[in-house]
Design a protein around this nucleic acid. Sequence first.
DNA 1: GCGACAG
DNA 2: ATCTTGTCGC
Length: 240
Amino acid sequence: MDTHPTFSCADELRHWPTDETRARAVQDRLRTCVRLDESGPPPGFAGTVVGVDVAYDDARNVVAAAAVALDAQTLAVVDEATAVGEVSFPYVPGLLAFREIPTVLDALTRLTRTPDLVVCDGYGLAHPRRFGLASHLGVLTGLPTIGVAKNPFTFRYEPPGPERGATSPLLDRDGVEGVDEEVGRALRTQKGVKPVFVSVGHRVGLDQACAHTLHLAAAYRLPETTRAADSLCRRALARA
DNA sequence: GCGACAG
DNA sequence: ATCTTGTCGC
């Protein structure tokens, strides 16, 4: 009578790296498990989209994570969960997953339903080793994931058109002329506001990732999943 | 060596 | 991420 969704990543958690060298080795190993051949749940599907986010209190060395499930069609909140832990990895650009994922997984497993799609704060494929937070969380859980970031990180892009829904390719910084690879997309979710940066995580295509993001960002620049998770983890941190 | 860098 | 006041605008 276990109603909690379970994920087969206990082994990875037991062997969680504590230094940068081993962390990069983990990324290089797990990268081969990412599935980029599935388009994922179609826009407008009947199910839940879960947003995850984390907040920190450096002074107390405490981290709080939140997972909020929204009805994919109405965007109504249907479930939410939080988890509190100890900060166990420093912020290192390119290694964000090792700082955030343990507590995020804890919160995810406290949901009463299995997510159909998970939206992360940060990147997936758009990553120095093509294995960002969203990719990592996807491989560990097996769930379809995407990343929606607020900043272009190390990538370059031309500003998308001014209208909501306009996109432009997110390109690797050191791409040589003519061989640039599109690692994600800058997506204008609201007219006249800075774009967000979308990349695929696991088992979702880039077109679908952008479509989901646009649908989730019907009212504000950021997806409702991100806004709800951000708000909840801050509240959880405050009472921790 | 220097700069830059999701959250 | 987090530290932080007022202020401009719908």
